Structure formats: C-alpha cells, structure tokens
Simulated scan of single mutants.
Amino acid sequence: MGRRPSIDRAELVRLVAEGRTVRELAEHFGVSESGVLQAKRAAGVAKPQLDHSGAIPWKVAREHSQSGPATNLRNLSAIAQGSPPPQVKVNTALRWAQRLVDAGLDVGYDPVEGFAEVPVGADGSHVGRLLNRAREALG
C-alpha cells in the first residue's frame, strides 16, 4: 500500500490566493476535491459556509429545492448574512419578498405540494422578518 497523498499547507494557501479552483487543486495535489475542501477548512482558507436553515426551516424535497421561493429565500438569507448574490438576484428576491409583505402573504411549505403563498399567521411574517434582516444588511 502506498502512502496517502498529502497537501502542503503553505503551498495550498499560496495556490488558493492565486485563485486556483478546487478541481485544479485536487489535480495538483493528487487528491479528491473533498480532500482539498477539508484541507482548505483546516488551513483556514475556505469561504465560510452560509447557513440558510433559518430562512428555509423545512425539510425540503429535492424537487422543490430549486423552485422560485426556495431560491429567493436562500438569496435573502445570503444578503442577511452579508454575502449577497449578484445584484439581479438581490433585486428579484427583494421584489418577491416585498410583494408578499404588501399583500399580507407569507410562504409556507408542504413536502408534497411544495412552496405556496399563504396568509400571514399569528406569529407574523417569516418572509417579512427575513426581508427586514436583508435590508438591514444592505444598509
């Protein structure tokens, strides 16, 4: 059995700074892309992962994960976390959320039916709260 390939941390940091992709790094070091991602996290050069669990608190079926509402919720979440997507996606998410808020609607989720616009419940508007956090982050 051969020795496992290793990733030189200093070289990894240098190559990441040059803008090398994960695929390029994996080929360079002779490891899997997963191995590169683990090494980047260990070296402190991985981009922080965004957590969208507050924006999408449901267990979403795969077929609904790329729907308009799911995408807009993730984009609002990214904005609120200080990592906004491209401006066109920001504008789309903000307009979508504002339309719901103005109409007194919120978003709900059913694992079979998918996302739906629903009246705002007694606990307030999920979309409205997320919209406010996104707007605060944008300044």
Rank of each mutant, 00 (worst) to 15 (best):
R95S: 15
Q87F: 12
Q87N: 10
S77C: 04
L94R: 03
I79F: 11
A78D: 15
Q87M: 15
E63M: 09
P85T: 07
A80Q: 04
A93P: 07
N75R: 14
S83T: 12
S77W: 02
P57E: 06
N91W: 03
H64T: 05
K59I: 10
W58I: 03
I56L: 15
L94C: 06
V90P: 09
G68F: 05
V90Q: 08
R95P: 02
R62N: 11
Q87Y: 12
I79Y: 00
A55S: 15
G82C: 02
H64Q: 08
S67E: 09
P86E: 04
A93E: 03
A61V: 08
T71A: 15
N75M: 04
R74F: 13
A61E: 14
G82R: 00
T92E: 11
G68Y: 01
Q81E: 06
P57Y: 01
Q81Y: 12
E63W: 11
S67G: 07
S77D: 08
A55P: 00
V60C: 11
H64L: 08
P57K: 13
R62C: 03
K89V: 11
Q87W: 13
A55Y: 08
Q66C: 05
V88Y: 14
P84W: 01
S77A: 13
P84R: 05
Q66W: 04
L76D: 01
W58V: 08
S83I: 00
H64C: 03
R62L: 13
T71H: 03
H64Y: 06
L94H: 12
L73S: 10
N91G: 01
A61I: 00
S65G: 07
K59W: 00
I79M: 03
A78T: 01
S83V: 12
G82A: 05
L94A: 10
R62W: 13
S83C: 10
K59H: 13
Q66T: 15
A70G: 11
E63N: 07
L94F: 12
V60R: 14
R74S: 05
E63L: 08
L76M: 08
A55K: 05
V60S: 01
G82F: 09
S65T: 12
A70K: 07
V60N: 03
K89R: 14
R95N: 13
W58E: 06
L94Y: 11
V90M: 09
H64I: 06
